[in-house]
Write a protein that binds this DNA or RNA. Sequence first.
RNA 1: GUGGUUGUAGCUCAGUUGGUUAGAGCGCCUGAUUGUGGUUCAGGAGGUCGUCGGUUCGAGACCGAUCUUCCACCCCA
Length: 455
Amino acid sequence: MKKPSIPKGTRDFSPVEVTRRSYIMDTIKASFANFGFQPIETPSFENSETLMGKYGEEGDRLIFKILNSGDFLRKVGDDLYTEKDSAKLTPKISEKALRYDLTVPFARYVVQHQNEITFPFKRYQMQPVWRADRPQKGRFREFYQCDADVVGSSSLWQEVELVQLYDTVFGKLKLEGVTIKMNNRKILSGIAEMIGAEDKLIDFTVALDKLDKIGEEKVKVEMREKGIAETAITKLQPLFSVTGTASEKLATLKSLLSTSEIGLQGISEMEFIVDAIETLELSAATLEIDVTLARGLNYYTGAIFEVAAPDGVAMGSIGGGGRYDDLTGIFGMKDMSGVGISFGLDRIYLVLEELNLFPETVTANSKVLFINFGEKEALYALQAIKLLRAAGINAELYPDATKMGKQMGYADKRDIPYVVLAGESEMVDGTYTLKNMKSGEQEQCGLERLQKVLK
RNA sequence: GUGGUUGUAGCUCAGUUGGUUAGAGCGCCUGAUUGUGGUUCAGGAGGUCGUCGGUUCGAGACCGAUCUUCCACCCCA
């Protein structure tokens, strides 16, 4: 018989993995609540029209479409069918699609529930999203995003708080040395304006984004390929040498963009955030200005964030976010500014695993196994187990009265730290033999002592 | 979507220019040991070599397709 399997890019999670994932999620969730965010959930699939066209052409390709129910092909006209044009045919046979991220569904939620929401609305959401991508390391077709967004306030204090939120979560996870990279769409616009390539903003930033990956020369090559003028590339030169501390970088940028109103506005926004964070101080993360950061440009209008794992860990970004002045505009609700960040749960897991940062105590294992000696003895054991469980101690009885070696082996393999032996002789004097599996020591004791040791 | 890569026992992997009955380590099961796990010893089970097709007297090995793994690009958490 053929072995069953799961679709590529998806995963099963073992007990250890689920426990560790919940550890991360609980940490993030607690911090979200700690910062005043409230949870919502949205359906795993949306109407196609809600999602299509919101992530660019590339995004549309990566959205999982759901086939209509029923005899969906019968409703397709003969000419459309013979034409074999997938782009035209798709909307006719698929009217629903799996959620691609949490931001667009959130925008839809805000517009749809605008009369029930008190603004500014701070929401968090932790749910799986799906992308029809080709899997790679840390890249899956089903993965979790943990988002916190604020909608209905354009205050820069939100950006400041979100940086703090990142720092709080990574601090709690003991993940030291992450870098929060920050940029501003307005600075990118200012640069494009300055070099006279406003119409090529996206091409220009996508190329710039690859600087640390492919190097200065190749970035220039790509810019030329995209039709950016040589004079513009020359004007760009000082940008490749923006270095130093955050305030030094800002000073360089300021002189570079002195003629661009929008560029200067972006710089002052960044200054505000950097100054506030300098006063408030971060514990686990570093805030860094990175003018080459240009992800998610389809809707970001102000701050752009991306979180890089600590040095030495080969992993794509473990978080991202930014400000979008008009997110709900695509659903017809104007002038609603939003800003938010996202944690990539699956990648954070891989980083914590690589750095061995999961606490030992993160386990859902039983504390004690009661050996099964037979019917009367099992009942005697279950009476004690009932009390232990009521006291919050994870305890279990071996279900079958098999050979002791087998039962002990089970406890050993499951890494259960204690075993209780209660047979005929213990029953007679109402005691239990408690064995510490690690040291091998054992003692005969009463219920009270049992509970005290196992607590 | 483009290019490359991987698949042999539950796991990690050997398997020579194509040649008899496909191996190892670990794990698993049984016993030595009927109230004591890990260690040791003895024995045992387990594979239509990812799948389908082709070349050949003969294929785990060669060819094609397909699925899967990982990687790069694109893009992204």
